[in-house]
Design a binder for these strands. Structure first.
Lengths: 339, 339
DNA sequence: CTGAAAGCGCTAACAT
DNA sequence: ATGTTAGCGCTTTCAG
């Protein structure tokens, strides 16, 4: 029994080993591995491939990144990956990036601006080719990003922040659709559950909610602030319930809050939608499996991810800044009173 | 007004630029940045730090990784990041890794073995210092990992797979706790909802469920297979409902299935826990906000992540293989009939 | 305490 | 079609 010449033993296999084994130069190995920039004779290519297979060669991405100045990776910063909306967004980004041969590294800032900045710095050091920032706040500190000189896009932002690409959703229109639907069910006292992290900018959902109410000649409903989380929604829900002028319908500005509100309602024995109707925002998977299933304003997660990836590493990149606003879609389920 | 000598313009700032600006050698810059391996005079250090600040220097992680043969990163492969259990696990890994100065890159295999393998390969190329594999299957193809020669640990695995570290949870004991609790509520016909992806190995939850029933002198309950997802649970739930000998309690082997089952139950007007009790497995956040809240066997996500990170890059690494089995905790809420 | 320099693995321009 | 080689930015040994 002949021992094969393979030396799996001594450290990792480099391109040099492959070259030696195949009896060619290192350049040829590169050409084969990268499919260019030069052509290689079929016979030679076969030899190289065989060597790669036998030796178990794996290109070293760090070396490649160093040489190329690009890691073929994009970084993503989300405030909270416990929120299925961001999870799904990240997943969509991963897919869209993979399509173009890019990897993704995902970081969480857990709602902390400090962490957000730190994550951006770490990503920059990692030579990512771009970063997507879904910030905790509406007007994030973009200076860190600008300083890093790496292309970036603000995800989940509907403004037109200066100096940076953005893709977001028409929050105001989405809110209008939700509130109009509720009005269509005959509600006249419609509350709003909204986030605490609005920064200086006004949340489009608040604007849309209020405008729709006024356009319909209805009084402003009660508005409550809370974190965009299940517990946050739970607290908000209890506070709505204890109001003297309790609303008969609530527009929750994200699914997590809505799910928290639902819990508060269930615990109090308030029936949804009979006693109190609910429409939420995001269209995450969770909204489909709550009880009752949530009527929700769905964000086009896939389209957002694709637009962002295109803006960063697609063909049109490097052009002037783009601010893309995508539209939402009202998904009718049971929590609003339909069916 | 003097223009500063800073040249933010021409490409990224390298360590050489910093050295020149500070009037020292590149080695000294390294010493300062890395806090070693040599000491630097305080005055010199100050100059270097100033240069770094002024120039906006950021170390190039790719170069560092190339030189060191380590990217100070660990890779994680999960089957489905839509499942909050994995999301939370990944988050815990991110935290535990950050603690030791490691970054994390998360990849999804979407339940596909092919993707799983591809992800492992990609991670290996990225020079990650270790990979955590939460596989889609119980006995994953570890050859890919072994071939890559990068240290790895199987997460979420309760066996003692040869040639690889593992950390998992005592599924059987967890299942026993769940089923015993149900028996304590007087149930005698207890069904099991379990996954489809058990591979060759028997799922400990099935073993525990069956053993507990038999130990109590109860007949084997009905068992149904379905994907570990909400829709999977929904289907399973409908099938349970249509059974001639419908169980009065179900042990669902993960939270997602339980949530799907809950939907099926609600739609059919079956009350939980009055008409049918439910206990699930995982203890993810979602289980707390379903209606009713799920009594669930919680996995110690944080401890698992820490154990895994320690096994990979902690001080004891490189020692012989470790197979760690952690224990679960039954969290009592409402779906079982308590309170 | 500081500096010079080798070399990590890879790519691609330039030679043959 | 294939080979040679410089150099990406960094770390660290070895010399001063």
């Amino acid at each position: 029994m002949t021992t094969s010449a393979v030396q799996t033993s001594r450290g990792p296999v480099t391109r040099k080993d492959v070259a030696r084994y195949a009896g060619v130069s290192t350049a040829v190995v590169s050409y084969v591995v990268n499919g260019g920039p030069k052509n290689v004779a079929p016979g030679t290519e076969a030899k190289v491939r065989e060597a790669i297979r036998v030796l178990g060669y794996r290109p070293n991405a760090a070396a490649r990144a160093l040489k190329l100045g690009s890691s073929e990776t994009i970084g993503v910063v989300v405030p909270d990956n416990t929120n299925p909306f961001f999870t799904q967004l990240a997943h969509a980004v991963e897919d869209a990036a993979a399509e173009l041969g890019f990897g993704m590294v995902l970081t969480n800032s857990d709602g902390s601006l400090t962490r957000e900045r730190k994550n951006i710095r770490t990503l920059a050091a990692r030579q990512v080719d771009g970063v997507f920032l879904a910030s905790c706040v509406f007007d994030p500190d973009v200076t860190e990003l600008e300083a890093s000189e790496i292309p970036s896009v603000l995800l989940n932002n509907a403004g037109s922040p200066p100096g940076i690409n953005s893709v977001g959703v028409d929050l105001e229109a989405g809110a209008r659709a939700a509130v109009e639907h509720l009005i269509g069910h005959g509600h006249t006292n419609i509350g709003l559950a909204i986030g605490t992290n609005t920064g200086n900018q006004l949340d489009g959902r608040e604007v849309g909610w209020l405008a729709t109410l006024r356009d319909a000649g209805l009084p402003d409903g009660p508005m409550l602030h809370g974190p965009f989380t299940r517990p946050g929604g739970y607290e908000v829900g209890k506070r709505f319930l204890s109001m003297a002028n309790r609303p008969t319908a609530i527009f929750a500005s994200n699914d997590m809050q809505a799910i928290g509100i639902l819990r508060a309602l269930h615990e109090a024995g308030v029936r949804v939608p009979e006693d109190l109707a609910l429409v939420s925002f995001d269209g995450s998977l969770d909204s489909e499996y709550s009880w009752p299933a949530l009527t929700t304003v769905a964000q086009p997660v896939k389209a957002m991810a694709e637009a962002a990836v295109q803006a960063l590493v697609g063909k049109g990149r490097g052009d002037e800044l783009k601010h893309q606003i995508l539209s939402t879609e009202l998904i009718i389920r049971q929590s609003c009173g339909c069916k």
